[in-house]
């Protein structure tokens, strides 16, 4: 009984810790010089989501993600940025949760790229709905390109972290 409480406590502490790390990474990224193309992001916070999926589980990772999005919107964003983040974040999480078992820790970069692609696809969809113009679709190739590049980088970093965690 005592053991269970202690492992539960450990889990919640780790979740809280990862949420704050995720939030810090988000803040660090927004402090970088802005990338001239709208919607192109490195997605540092995604490292935490990937790591959490593997070391804590999907449910916990999802809770960390949602908490991070809510908190980051409170700190630096608006209602609109919350809409963008939650759509992209949930879509990315969905595909990553589905594919994380298939690819495992060693091929996490594939999961990461798929997540980034879905994240950007979700944001593009929201942008088209919000502005009501399909002309924004010209961004699609740029967003896909950036998703593949940043997804690979984030995936490699995540693998490095996960290997050290073992």
């Amino acid at each position: 009984m005592k053991n269970k409480t202690s492992s539960c406590l450990k889990k919640y502490t780790l979740m809280a810790l990862l949420t704050s790390v995720s939030l810090i990474l988000f803040m660090v990224e927004s402090a970088f010089p802005p990338i001239p193309i709208q919607g192109v992001k490195i997605g540092l916070s995604n490292i935490v989501t990937i790591v959490a999926i593997f070391i804590l589980g999907k449910k916990e990772a999802f809770m960390i993600l949602v908490m991070r999005i809510i908190l980051s919107s409170v700190f630096s964003g608006s209602v609109l940025s919350f809409g963008f983040s939650i759509t992209g974040g949930v879509l990315a999480f969905g595909i990553m949760a589905l594919t994380s078992d298939v690819f495992g820790v060693k091929k996490v970069w594939i999961t990461s790229v798929l997540g980034a692609v879905f994240h950007n696809a979700g944001q593009l969809a929201v942008a088209i709905i919000v502005t009501g113009t399909s002309r924004i679709f010209v961004y699609a190739p740029i967003l896909l390109l950036s998703a593949i590049v940043t997804g690979t980088v984030i995936g490699i970093v995540s693998t490095a972290l996960l290997v050290r965690h073992r």
């Binding site: 010209v138 190739p141 896909l144 390109l145």
Partner: peptide, 26 residues
């Protein structure tokens, strides 16, 4: 094949090339 690194590397590389071509064209 689906889970191999090579398959995804090739797929993503092709997508990158297609994207670059589209970006330059547009």
């Amino acid at each position: 094949l689906f889970t191999s690194n090579i398959f995804w590397i090739v797929l993503f590389s092709l997508l990158v090339i297609v994207c670059v071509i589209i970006i330059f064209a547009t």
